[in-house]
């Protein structure tokens, strides 16, 4: 790691002091050219493996039918790009409305989920809190057994949530896995910190907000990302609980473009057929559109994300 911290001038000075033939460890020595080249080549291949599919997706979304037919699927370069696929998907206002639904559900849902998960995980991480064991067991139980589609539907219906956006949030507001992740993180915080806060007269809520949470930004970011992605991607609950298509989130609306038209092929001449650009372009345009929001958010929380995943890695 030292190599990263020192400046070029320092490194040059160090090299001058110590001839290459000395007995320093191998990883500090100068690499032979072939190794550098091999490493560069390997990294290039790895980068291409990530970038080429993405380019193909973007290019196909812009390509006309002629190019798609000629390539028999994905297109890497089109000389005649057009935004027809995006225009087709965005026209009519249905997709834009769905986008706002998705944003609201994701934002409200993530905040609510984080609040509930933090409080539950904190309570479960405190030794001796009320009904600590049974609640923990019940939480774990939901990891093993899923209620199934129809019982869930009946509960949601009895709660009067059908055709209500809350039906996309409330049934999944707490995820047991995320609770476990967060609880283990809280358990690893040194007990001395909370004890000293207690001696200073802080109550549990104060300890949570002023001591525990500031130390837990990484795990909150990770769990928040998990929740946000889950809310963003959810379409099935909307399919079941929201009869009005005006309330459908983005993913379900986009699904009607992809799922409905794909297997359909030539089996049914649907009303949309004549008006839509090539199916492959539409699919790829949809892919691009559903990835963009995540791409926008990701850089801001990426540092927390990698930190959060590595936390505990060296603690045994």
């Amino acid at each position: 790691m030292t190599g990263l911290l020192e400046t070029t001038a320092e490194r040059r000075a160090r090299r001058n002091r110590r001839p290459a033939s000395d007995d320093r460890p191998a990883w500090m020595g100068r690499q032979p050219h072939w190794a550098t080249a091999a490493r560069g080549g390997l990294l290039t291949v790895a980068c291409l493996a990530v970038i080429v599919p993405f380019v193909a997706v973007v290019m196909t979304s812009l390509a006309p039918q002629r190019d798609i037919s000629a390539r028999g699927g994905l297109v890497l370069f089109t000389s005649d790009p057009s935004l027809a696929a995006y225009r087709a998907v965005l026209s009519g206002g249905v997709v834009t409305r769905a986008l706002s639904v998705s944003v609201v559900v994701t934002a409200v849902g993530t905040v609510l989920s984080l609040a509930c998960t933090i409080m539950l995980a904190y309570a479960l991480s405190r030794p001796g809190s009320l009904l600590h064991k049974p609640i923990l067991l019940m939480t774990l139980f939901t990891l093993l057994f899923n209620p199934g589609m129809i019982p869930m539907y009946l509960i949601v219906k009895q709660l009067g949530l059908i055709d209500n956006l809350a039906a996309l949030i409330l049934p999944v507001v707490v995820n047991a896995f995320n609770v476990i992740v967060m609880r283990s993180f809280f358990l690893e915080l040194p007990g001395e910190l909370t004890e000293s806060a207690k001696i200073d007269g802080a109550g549990e809520l104060r300890i949570l907000t002023s001591v525990v949470l500031p130390l837990s930004k990484a795990v909150v970011a990770v769990v928040g990302l998990f929740y946000a992605v889950a809310y963003w991607n959810a379409f099935f609950s909307a399919l079941l609980y929201l009869p009005s298509p005006e309330k459908w989130p983005l993913q379900l609306v986009l699904r009607t473009f992809v799922v409905n038209q794909t297997p359909l092929g030539t089996d049914e001449l649907s009303a949309a057929t004549e008006s839509l650009p090539p199916q492959a372009s539409i699919q790829m345009a949809i892919l691009v559109m559903s990835v963009i929001p995540i791409l926008i958010i990701y850089p801001f929380i990426q540092k927390h994300f990698s930190k959060g995943l590595l936390i505990g890695a060296v603690k045994g």
């Binding site: 798609i68 390539r71 699927g73 794909t262 030539t266 049914e268 057929t273 492959a280």
Partner: peptide, 26 residues
């Protein structure tokens, strides 16, 4: 997939394809 087969048909890779009767105009 059928989409793939339709692409093969259109670009001449396979000059025969089995598709829906409704797909004539497609």
């Amino acid at each position: 997939s059928n989409n793939q087969r339709n692409d093969w048909f259109t670009n001449g890779t396979t000059p025969i394809v089995f598709g829906g009767y409704a797909g004539w105009s497609k």
